[in-house]
Design a protein around this nucleic acid. Structure first.
Length: 464
RNA sequence: UGCCGCAUAGCUCAGUCGGUAGAGCAGCUGACUGUUAAUCAGCGGGUCGUAGGUUCGAGUCCUACUGCGGCAGCCA
């Protein structure tokens, strides 16, 4: 056996008459008097290979072990299929059973299961249609992300996963420590209360964003991006938050907010187009079984420009919308989910980029506008998901950045290296952050973020 | 973390007014010369999430807990 052996996706396009051996897991078997059919899948494509076994060609006491979930291979000849649903099929003359799957206890069945149930058997759900398709789309998307940036001269920067600066300010963090030990009674023991005794000599955490680190690389390599795991210790309990997720953060020197928005728009359109080109059967499945509007929406996104408006314009639209809001809208308040969704789903009907938010509701590092009230921030809002991207032009003026840090009562000393970027060779720069799983949700139509990552990590959930 | 909802067979669910449990699918056995989530017949399968309480009697009503989901907040 060798990894180079033929995958099912290649067999499905091979000509009739070819000798072939097909390895995979049995989806289902249908028996009738003189012939049996086995649906075989190896994850290499959405479609199953139909294996035909004429009675007598394989001993019955062998074939009976080819039950749903079993790992098997069939050898025989590829033939034109007289049935509908496939152009070729494998007429088998011998089979090998690698691993049986007891049909009484094997939890997957050929009929539908809920996403909640499949989540409980995350180690087996990869064999099902939905999760196989999610995985292929996720893989294609990751490759498309790298291609997009590589084709534009961006360098992939591996920013640290452990950070000892708690100044990232993007949310609650997981502490990283060697001071914590398990006691025999099952509890925890702290071998020292002094952070100076800890591994790094000071408190350390899992990163909540690589942005501050990657900004340093932009101020020298010009166009850079991160693509890696990110952690938030928020006790969020929603279908769109994870404790561990993958984030993409481009950062560009000599670039302003307009350039940032252009990149975001190109990015979303090109990555989606790439997935549509490479995963058509998977998307067709999602469109049929998961989200009926999916293909229509993706087509629309790829072929139409994103609407752009300022926060102030958006607030005016919301105030004069005639809708009754659970949370009232007024200039200065953060937009709620209901407001964002109305804008992108009802008012505009496609992705919207909102810009120039009040400085009070955005991060300290964002470029301050002349009006003294707003900053050069942008959020990309898309139907079904809400906020997909958050970005900004960064404040490159040392004095203004220092003033903002002091105004917010932050510890200026902790930002010494970040402020150095403005002290030496400062340049206009901008970037954004995009949650990879949210992109996958958007492209697949999947409703829960826990179903677009192999093994989800959320509060109270770290099985597998 | 707050509010709301749900928890009954392997899965998806029904269970009326409180009177000791039902269906479809899956599984098993058999039938059928080509099926496509095959079809047809038969069979087996339950500590009704856990712990209390009310009641002659609780799957059903009440309380707490656990788990899951939805919405909201935090955000990506």
């Amino acid at each position: 056996m060798d990894y180079r052996r033929t995958l099912l996706k290649d067999l499905l396009t091979s000509p009739a008459g070819a000798e072939a051996t097909a390895h995979g897991w049995v989806k289902t078997r249908r028996d009738s008097k003189g012939v049996s059919f086995v649906q075989l899948n190896d994850g290499s494509c959405f479609k199953d290979l139909q294996v035909v076994i004429e009675s007598g060609s394989i001993p019955e006491d062998q074939l009976k072990h080819a039950t749903t979930g079993a790992a098997v291979s069939f050898t025989g000849t590829m033939v034109d299929s007289p049935g509908e649903g496939q152009s070729v099929e494998l007429k088998a003359t011998s089979m090998t059973i690698y691993g049986e799957a007891d049909p009484v206890t094997y939890p997957l069945q050929k009929k539908g299961a809920t996403m909640e149930f499949l989540r409980e058997i995350a180690h087996l759900r990869v064999r099902g249609n939905t999760f196989g398709a999610v995985t292929r789309v996720r893989n294609r998307a990751a490759a498309a992300v790298h291609n997009f940036f590589q084709n534009r001269g961006f360098y992939w920067v591996h920013t640290p996963i452990i950070t000892a600066s708690d100044c990232e300010g993007a949310g609650a963090m997981f502490a990283v420590s060697t001071l914590l030990h398990h006691a025999p009674d099952g509890g925890f023991v702290l071998s020292s209360k002094d952070p100076a005794d800890d591994f790094f000599g000071k408190p350390a955490y899992l990163t909540v964003s690589g942005q501050l680190n990657v900004e340093t690389f932009a101020m020298g390599l010009t166009n850079v991006y991160t693509f890696g795991p990110t952690f938030r210790a928020e006790n969020s309990n929603t279908p769109r938050h994870l404790a561990e997720f993958w984030m993409i953060e481009p950062e560009m020197a000599f670039c302003d907010l307009d350039g940032d928005m252009n990149l975001a728009e190109e990015f979303v359109r090109e990555v989606i187009q790439d997935i549509m080109d490479g995963c058509a059967p998977d998307l067709e499945f999602f469109n049929q079984r998961v989200e009926p509007e999916l293909l229509k929406t993706l087509d629309h996104v790829v072929n139409s420009g994103f609407e752009r408006m300022t926060y102030t314009e958006a607030v005016n639209l919301l105030v004069n919308s005639g809708e009754t809001w659970e949370f009232p809208v007024s200039w200065g308040s953060d937009l709620q989910s209901e407001h964002e969704r109305w804008l992108t789903e009802k008012k505009v009907g496609r992705p919207v980029i909102l810009t120039d938010y009040p400085k009070e509701i955005k991060a300290f590092y964002m470029k301050q506008n002349e009006d003294g009230k707003t900053v050069r921030a942008m959020d990309v809002l898309v139907p079904r998901i809400g906020e997909l991207i958050g970005g900004s032009q960064r404040e490159d003026d040392l004095k203004k950045l220092e003033a903002r840090i002091e105004e917010l009562g932050l510890d200026k000393a902790a930002y010494w290296w970040y402020l150095d970027l403005r002290r030496y060779g400062s340049a206009p720069h901008a970037g954004f952050g995009l949650g990879f799983e949210r992109l996958i949700m958007y492209v697949t139509g999947m409703k829960n973020i826990r179903d677009v990552i192999p093994f989800h990590r959320a509060s109270g959930q770290a099985e597998f």
